[in-house]
Design a binder for these strands. Structure first.
Lengths: 376, 376
DNA sequence: GGAACAGTTGAATCCTTTT
DNA sequence: TAAAAGGATTCAACTGTTC
């Protein structure tokens, strides 16, 4: 493909690390390791990677010097017939780790041919696995020879940058909402990419392993926020870019093959971003602004001296002017007193305590909601 | 446990490899690596292994009701590093390979904590992966903190002794018959081991990680013939032995802990071999799979931003990306919003809401039916 | 006797901010 | 940096009790 404003040529190998500005919503042509090494470090929120898994599997286990590995004690830390693939894997995962923000996370998809190499490398490189996700295909290709089980799934690994770097995005509530109000599980049932969604060039598939948009939809809805940057180092025909654009996220695509880039570019251009109401990103409860109980007293929503009850009216406590409670000699915050009267180690005072209004018990959390609504 | 005719003491480390006769249908007490090295080479048909997962649990975990989760904190699951775990893995997999017949196969079960280490080691040791099998738990433990996807599955790797040594057993027709006459897939839905099947000592579970018999039933039905020898190097409370005996197969169990051996021995003694007729598998009736509304959005059957109507077009609501609806400031699931706009306590959103296609109103339930049809 | 309800439990790498 | 505090968080299956 000729140069266009949407396609960047790969940075030369000599490019200084981090000297290239992040090419937002563009496809960069080139080797993903070189390109990633040219990007600014800690600059992307999430990486989605669908690496190749074409391996030379028939070789026997040999070291680089061609001696055969036979012992127990030296097999596990030596190169093997998988050496070339492992080397490639470590290189791109290392480059990916550099460009990933400390609060970022990475997704890698694969099958049993390569996923154990990838998972092993991720762990060795100090990534921290969050989940392994099973994409259960509703319409897999059958096993024609009847020699094994129908290979009906692929595996995705979702990992944070390291064990002590938390802060990764997980839209728990959105996932739960998408799953009829029960937690989203680690096994996802989705059809393979077929029909109109399957991109063609003439009457041939544009790409051998095009992933369904539904898969990326769930990945991005789960682990990114609107405006986040998603890097895909094996961009192919651009499923990641198409879904990112639709969902109001930014993408950076890296791809070597001109033919794929061309198809991906056309595809993404045709995608429209959903409007903001439809996007409807709701802040998780954990991320909402903190409202001290004292504010409710301060504003007169709750009067000092008033009595609070639990939902069964088994426990009662009186409100003091400073926003603490007192019950049976126990003084402290709404949480501490709630925990103590029940003899529990912890308690969410917001949902535990109620005020009595016209004979009805109203959780004090409704006042907090009022205050938050004012704050937008 | 005292010596008995059913329990053998481990062979001494100096025992010459292969000098011990195969202890058929017995539990050998000792370290599995030493014991396996003392057994005759190429003597067992199938190995089933449930090694420690190296879960690296830190603090105690509590449920939302403040009760404590009884996690796996046993000494046998503690390893100092990945290196230590890898070393252990290579050792036992090497010993296992020696006792396995050339026509044999091996099963190893694990979770994301260890399965990538195991899979990597299997490949490096020249085993040949036949399938990775997903045990989808119908009743997994939820994620109590809302931080990740519910960890709802475990992975089994099924591998032959090497790429050029075929001849492993796969009972294709039995598997197909067990699965309503369609090929058995690589994902198996089975409940966890609970209820009466769960072995207890007093009121405590006998083993932290007892596997369900249904899982071993399928493994052995798929990959062994009557009379075959199945070796389990991490025998625990003997699920492998119990199912092997029931199915008319022979087992060899290796276990270190006296307490587990005692429980396993009693359990297996109580098992009766099924008569040949009873070996026919009774099919459990499949329930209608639940399809979340979010799936329709994810798959593009319904577009975020699209408007839904009731059959009389009296009410309207817009679809958001996470599969919730919004109508007149009311947000929530298709059921919740349907109920609220009507002022009713409840509503079946599937039949209430419709999409407009070419001037016709189509209930959204038709899309759910489409998805169910794909799932069979 | 059976329905309804309350209680328990499972291989889990399960929090974040302020003081 | 360690300790304290705020406050967010669960699903399906089985067991046992009550009405």
């Amino acid at each position: 493909m000729a140069n266009s404003d949407k396609v960047k040529k790969a940075a030369p190998k000599t490019a200084k690390a981090g000297t290239i500005k992040l090419p937002l919503n563009k496809i960069v042509q080139g080797d993903c390791i070189e390109v990633m090494n040219s990007l600014p470090e800690k600059s992307v929120d999430v990486i989605f990677a669908d690496p190749p898994y074409n391996m030379q599997l028939k070789d026997t286990l040999t070291r680089p010097d061609n001696s055969k590995v036979d012992g127990v004690h030296d097999a596990w830390d030596q190169f093997s017939s998988f050496g070339a693939y492992d080397h490639f894997t470590y290189e791109w995962l290392t480059a990916a780790r550099r460009v990933l923000k400390d609060t970022g996370s990475i997704w890698v998809i694969g099958s049993y041919h390569n996923i154990f190499r990838v998972g092993n490398a991720l762990q060795n490189l100090d990534y921290w696995i969050l989940n392994d996700i099973i994409w259960r295909k509703s319409n897999p290709m059958p096993n024609f020879r009847g020699t094994r089980f129908t290979n009906a799934h692929e595996t995705l690994i979702w990992a944070g940058k390291s064990a002590d770097k938390s802060g990764y995005t997980f839209n728990y509530d959105a996932m739960k909402a998408m799953n009829d109000d029960t937690q989203m599980r680690s096994d996802w049932v989705l059809p393979i990419c077929a029909g109109k969604e399957r991109l063609k060039v003439g009457d041939k598939k544009a790409h051998a392993t095009q992933k369904p948009e539904a898969l990326l939809y769930r990945v991005l809805m789960a682990s990114t926020k609107p405006g986040d940057v998603i890097l895909d180092p094996f961009f192919g025909t651009g499923t990641t870019g198409a879904v990112a654009k639709k969902l109001g996220r930014n993408f950076v695509g890296i791809e070597r093959e001109t033919d794929y880039i061309k198809v991906a570019q056309e595809r993404i251009t045709a995608v429209k971003k959903l409007d903001d109401e439809a996007l409807g990103y709701t802040l998780s409860k954990k991320a909402q602004p903190r409202v001290p109980f004292g504010n409710l007293v301060e504003r007169g929503m709750i009067t000092p001296g008033e009595t609070l009850y639990d939902s069964n009216k088994r426990y009662a406590a009186r409100v003091r002017t400073d926003g603490t409670l007192i019950a049976e000699e126990v003084k402290g915050s709404i949480h501490q007193v709630g925990a103590r009267v029940q003899g529990q180690p912890a308690c969410n005072g917001w949902t535990f305590w109620h005020v009595e209004k016209k004979g009805e018990l109203l959780p004090i959390d409704v006042f907090r909601q009022e205050i938050r609504a004012e704050m937008h």
